[in-house]
Deep mutational scan, measured.
Amino acid sequence: NQASVVANQLIPINTALTLVMMRAEVVTPMGIPAVDIPRLVSMQVNRAVPLGTTLMPDMVKGYA
């Protein structure tokens, strides 16, 4: 099973992602693959992402 990107903290809307905000976890359903974490750094979320939420492609501006 491939790990997905999960929020390590509450990420407010329009926040630029940093490594500290994300962790890799095997979850269902799968979200953004953990291998993409370096690519996500400095991209912004388009909604508030609660702690423990799996990041989906439509939550990150410019990802999809």
Rank of each mutant, 00 (worst) to 15 (best):
N1E: 15
N1Q: 15
N1P: 15
N1V: 15
N1C: 06
N1G: 15
N1W: 10
Q2Y: 15
Q2E: 15
Q2C: 15
Q2I: 13
Q2S: 14
Q2W: 14
Q2N: 09
A3M: 09
A3Q: 08
A3L: 09
A3K: 04
A3D: 15
A3Y: 07
A3S: 13
A3T: 11
A3R: 03
A3G: 08
S4N: 01
S4C: 05
S4Y: 03
S4P: 00
V5F: 02
V5M: 02
V5P: 01
V6G: 01
V6M: 13
V6A: 05
V6I: 13
V6D: 00
V6R: 04
V6E: 02
V6S: 04
V6K: 06
A7V: 12
A7N: 02
A7L: 04
A7I: 04
N8P: 02
N8A: 15
N8F: 12
N8W: 07
N8M: 12
N8G: 14
N8L: 07
N8K: 10
Q9K: 08
Q9I: 12
Q9P: 01
L10I: 13
L10H: 11
L10Q: 09
L10T: 10
I11Y: 01
I11H: 01
I11N: 00
I11V: 12
I11S: 00
I11W: 02
P12I: 07
P12N: 11
P12L: 12
P12S: 10
P12W: 05
P12K: 10
P12F: 08
P12V: 06
P12C: 07
I13V: 08
I13G: 10
I13P: 11
I13E: 15
I13L: 09
N14H: 13
N14M: 07
N14Q: 08
N14Y: 11
N14W: 08
N14C: 07
N14D: 09
T15N: 09
T15D: 04
T15V: 11
T15E: 07
A16R: 06
A16S: 14
A16W: 09
A16K: 04
A16M: 12
A16I: 07
L17V: 03
L17P: 02
L17T: 00
L17S: 00
L17Y: 01
L17I: 07
L17D: 00
L17C: 01
L17R: 00
T18R: 07
T18Q: 06
T18A: 07
T18K: 05
T18C: 05
T18V: 09
T18Y: 03
L19Q: 04
L19T: 05
L19M: 12
L19K: 04
L19S: 05
L19E: 04
L19I: 05
L19H: 07
L19F: 07
V20L: 14
V20C: 10
V20A: 12
V20I: 14
V20F: 11
V20D: 06
V20S: 14
V20N: 11
M21P: 00
M21S: 06
M21L: 06
M22L: 15
M22I: 07
M22F: 10
M22N: 00
M22Q: 01
M22W: 02
M22V: 08
M22E: 00
M22R: 00
M22H: 00
R23V: 07
R23I: 05
R23D: 04
R23G: 07
R23Y: 03
R23P: 00
R23F: 03
R23T: 04
A24W: 06
A24L: 13
A24H: 10
A24T: 10
A24G: 12
A24R: 05
A24N: 14
E25D: 14
E25R: 03
E25N: 08
E25A: 09
E25K: 04
V26A: 12
V26E: 15
V26H: 13
V26K: 03
V26Q: 14
V26N: 09
V26W: 09
V27L: 09
V27K: 07
V27M: 15
V27N: 03
V27Q: 14
V27H: 05
V27P: 01
V27F: 02
V27D: 02
T28W: 05
T28N: 06
T28P: 02
P29Q: 13
P29I: 09
P29V: 12
P29K: 11
P29D: 08
P29Y: 14
P29M: 12
P29A: 13
P29T: 13
M30N: 11
M30V: 11
M30G: 04
M30K: 04
M30H: 10
M30W: 07
G31K: 01
G31W: 02
G31R: 02
G31I: 02
G31E: 01
G31Q: 02
G31N: 01
G31L: 01
G31Y: 02
G31D: 00
I32H: 00
I32E: 00
I32S: 01
I32F: 03
I32N: 01
I32Y: 02
I32V: 12
I32G: 00
I32L: 10
P33C: 15
P33M: 07
P33E: 11
A34G: 12
A34Y: 08
A34V: 06
A34M: 05
A34I: 07
V35E: 15
V35K: 05
V35W: 08
V35A: 12
V35F: 10
V35D: 12
V35Q: 15
V35R: 04
V35M: 11
D36H: 09
D36W: 06
D36F: 05
D36P: 01
D36Q: 09
D36Y: 07
D36E: 10
I37E: 02
I37H: 02
I37L: 13
I37P: 00
I37T: 13
I37Y: 02
I37R: 05
P38D: 07
P38W: 07
P38Q: 08
P38I: 05
P38V: 09
P38Y: 09
R39C: 10
R39I: 10
R39P: 03
R39K: 13
L40S: 00
L40Q: 00
L40R: 00
L40F: 02
L40N: 00
L40H: 00
L40V: 09
V41F: 10
V41Y: 08
V41N: 06
V41M: 08
S42P: 03
S42M: 11
S42H: 10
S42W: 12
S42D: 05
S42A: 15
S42L: 07
S42T: 08
S42V: 03
M43P: 00
M43I: 05
M43Q: 04
M43V: 04
M43W: 12
M43D: 03
M43S: 06
Q44M: 12
Q44F: 14
Q44E: 05
Q44I: 13
Q44D: 05
Q44Y: 14
Q44G: 05
Q44N: 10
V45F: 01
V45P: 03
V45G: 01
V45L: 12
V45C: 05
V45N: 03
N46T: 14
N46V: 14
N46S: 14
N46L: 15
R47M: 11
R47S: 06
R47E: 14
R47P: 02
R47N: 07
R47D: 10
A48R: 12
A48N: 08
A48W: 07
A48C: 13
A48E: 11
A48L: 09
A48Q: 10
V49E: 01
V49Q: 02
V49G: 01
V49R: 03
V49I: 11
P50M: 10
P50C: 06
P50S: 12
P50R: 10
P50Y: 13
P50L: 09
P50H: 08
L51N: 09
L51R: 13
L51G: 14
L51E: 13
L51W: 10
L51P: 07
G52C: 13
G52L: 05
G52A: 12
G52I: 02
G52F: 06
T53G: 11
T53K: 08
T54S: 07
T54E: 02
T54D: 01
T54C: 04
T54P: 11
T54V: 10
L55G: 01
L55N: 01
L55K: 00
L55S: 00
L55R: 00
L55C: 02
L55Q: 00
M56S: 12
M56A: 13
M56N: 08
M56V: 08
M56R: 05
M56L: 08
P57W: 12
P57Q: 11
P57G: 13
P57D: 09
P57S: 13
P57F: 10
P57L: 06
D58S: 10
D58F: 11
D58G: 11
D58T: 13
D58R: 05
D58H: 06
M59R: 03
M59S: 07
M59Q: 10
M59L: 07
M59E: 03
M59I: 10
M59D: 13
M59K: 02
V60W: 02
V60N: 00
V60G: 01
V60H: 01
V60A: 02
K61D: 06
K61L: 15
K61P: 06
K61F: 08
K61H: 13
G62Q: 14
G62R: 06
G62D: 10
Y63L: 12
Y63M: 05
A64H: 11
A64T: 15
A64W: 03
A64R: 06
A64F: 07
A64V: 10
